[in-house]
Amino acid sequence: MGKLKIEDLDKIAESARKKISLREGAGKVKITVHMGTCGIAAGARNIMATFLNEIEMHNAKDIIVVTSGCAGLCSKEPMATIEYENQAPVKYIELNEEKAKKIFDEHVLHGKIVPEYALSIGSERIQ
């Protein structure tokens, strides 16, 4: 292979940019609300409804919302997991609408974790 030229570097940078915007198209932040039976009984539906309202209010088009089943932590429900771009997933526990709004404003919109509501910060798998 020959020497890299400036144009090649530009091409590489351009293709990297394309990849990023592709990923943005698919969603920059993923919100998972745990909808196991316990979660639902503890109010997970309103947590999801709050996130959906915030998405509409902020016209936040690059967000993916999904539900997941039981997280095996009944007493900590309602729970949600936020995955912001390249950050490790953060699991939030014992949520209410106020907390969900704050998490949306700080973490989902700006990538700033809200440590006081978080269970743990790490790359654990979410069911």
């Binding site: 609300v33 539906r45 309103n46 999801m48 409804a49 959906l52 919302v65």
Partner: peptide, 11 residues
């Protein structure tokens, strides 16, 4: 109606 909203939007 809220049940419909949440399940449809999240899936």
């Amino acid at each position: 109606s809220k049940t419909m909203l949440v399940m449809v939007a999240a899936n």
